[in-house]
């Protein structure tokens, strides 16, 4: 079974990712593409649990308020150098007040985990060909940050200059 980093621990993961044009599995826990989930065409009663994953060109509007009820939202990083997912994460956490598991999926590499975590991700599906243990060990290269973000509600200036 694949594993992920969740809240600072390496844990087994049994969510099945459904791709944009992929077949639905027969049952179990599934992460549906956001457009498919929005379409209402999936019989969600067939599954043990439903989560959603967002393509990184998603624009969150009124419809996104319903995401709040889900146990997990994943945001796709098709390539690590495309930073749109960071903004989506902050919007989900700060604007839509999403509290449950927020997972980075796709090209998820250790050198980006710090930024992802600051933007509100608490779950990381590290790319399968990389060591998840090394990634976990390297999650926090910095003990100081200037900006307010999800891990630090106040900017540094409020701490040292106020």
């Amino acid at each position: 079974m694949p594993n992920i980093i969740l809240n600072g621990q390496i844990v087994d993961d049994n969510w099945q990712l459904v791709s944009l044009d992929g077949e639905l599995p027969a049952g179990g826990k599934v992460l549906l593409p956001y457009p498919l989930w929005l379409s209402g065409e999936v019989d969600i009663s067939a599954f043990e649990a439903i989560g959603v994953w967002l393509p990184n060109d998603t624009v969150l509007d009124e419809q996104a308020k319903a995401l709040d009820a889900l146990p997990v939202i994943a945001v796709d990083f098709p390539v690590f150098s495309d930073g749109r997912g960071y903004t989506l994460a902050r919007q989900l956490r700060e604007r839509f007040n999403f509290k449950a598991e927020l997972r980075a999926i796709g090209d998820v590499l250790q050198d980006q985990l710090f930024f992802m975590h600051r933007c509100g991700f608490n779950s990381f599906a590290v790319r399968a060909d990389r060591s998840i243990e090394e990634a976990l060990a390297a999650m926090k290269p910095f003990s100081v940050s200037y900006q307010a973000a999800l891990d630090q509600p106040q900017p540094l200036f409020a701490q040292r200059w106020a």
Binding site: G83, Y86, F115, S145, Y146, A149, P155, F157
Partner: peptide, 16 residues
Amino acid sequence: EIVRQWSTFHPEFAFL
């Protein structure tokens, strides 16, 4: 300087 600090390792804008 205020902008320098804000922009240094800004987590959301490292991959523009």
